[in-house]
Computed example of a mutant assay.
Amino acid sequence: MSDDTSGTFDRDTRYITDRIVADAPAGEPAGEKVGDVTWPVEAGRYHLAAARACPWAHRTILVRELMGLQDAISLGLAGPTHDERSWTFDLDPGGQDPVLGIERLQEAYFNRVPDYPLGITVPAMVDIPTTAVVTNDFDQLSKDLATQWGECAKPDAPELYPEDLREEIEKINERVYPDLNNGVYQAGFATSQSAYEDAYDRVFATLDWLEELLADRRYLVGDSITLADIRLYPTLVRFDPVYFGHFKCNRQTISSFPVLSAYLKDLWQTPGFGDTMNIDQIKEHYYVVHTNVNPTQIVPKGPDMSWLDEPSGRDQLS
């Protein structure tokens, strides 16, 4: 939504804030009301409803993949386009999610909260027995997938949110989320020149800062991939094909940043990153769904993203 007085896009961040945690007792979830309920970690009980097109859902797909939770948590992928009733499982045979048996994610939200009044968003963790949404709080969900599912993860699962680095990870996010992850949306959905220019300036100030920060370190925090990198990657990989043109963030492409382009190539070539991506679905989502920005719904053929497969040279920073 936009603030009519300033033309600034304000994201609705009201979510279902239930959590799935390791120390919750098995069986029925404990809590008095939606948003105040803890659910038990239980392999095979939950279904992650996501979409390859959505950057917020992309983060949870990455964590699930890197942690090796594929056998413990099934994955449902909605198609890249949707209407005002939101995401549909039109990629699956018969247009139904094969695990949940529903056509629209909206059904799982209504099973939890009848006539749910807020956004029908991905990612959403769904309780399979009841076909009801557990949580759609994408940031907390990513943290919990990284820290609460150890008993179901692969033996060599990485520490994506180590306790000794959490303060630094969150400090990075305090700038990356508002000024870049959400900043590109504030530029693209602005309805006044001043709001657009403010968001545009913050986007590129942040990219310049990251270019300098990553010059002598392979990853944002520590010596391995953390949630800081997972939060940044979906925005960087969408920048050239979508945000540069569609959202008018056109000072320069990521491919023209020497350090950021190498960093993005390094992540893209890491198992779990590029091999879980679909650039065509990403472009179709933005250019078809956002008719207020692109009323013709024409999807551009470019750009050529083959540069992501070139050597990054970042391994020398390990």
Rank of each mutant, 00 (worst) to 15 (best):
R11A: 10
D12M: 13
D12F: 07
R14D: 14
Y15G: 04
Y15F: 15
T17A: 13
T17S: 14
D18S: 08
D18R: 01
D18T: 06
I20C: 05
I20D: 02
V21C: 00
D23L: 01
D23N: 06
A24R: 01
G27C: 04
G31H: 08
D36M: 13
V37E: 03
P40F: 00
E42Y: 05
A43V: 10
G44D: 09
R45T: 01
R45N: 01
A49E: 05
A51Y: 10
A53P: 05
P55L: 05
P55W: 12
A57P: 08
A57D: 01
A57T: 07
H58T: 12
H58F: 15
R59Y: 04
R59T: 04
T60A: 10
I61T: 10
V63R: 03
E65C: 14
E65A: 13
L69F: 03
D71H: 12
D71Q: 13
A72W: 03
I73L: 09
I73H: 06
S74W: 02
D83H: 06
D83I: 14
E84G: 06
E84D: 12
R85M: 12
S86L: 14
W87H: 05
T88A: 10
L91P: 02
P93E: 11
D97L: 07
V99F: 08
V99H: 03
V99N: 05
E103M: 08
E103W: 08
Q106W: 09
A108T: 09
N111M: 09
R112M: 08
I120Y: 15
V122S: 00
V122P: 04
A124L: 09
M125P: 05
M125T: 06
I128C: 02
I128F: 01
P129H: 06
P129C: 10
T131N: 15
T131S: 15
T135H: 01
N136I: 09
D137Q: 07
D137V: 11
L141I: 12
S142H: 06
D144E: 12
A146C: 06
E151Q: 14
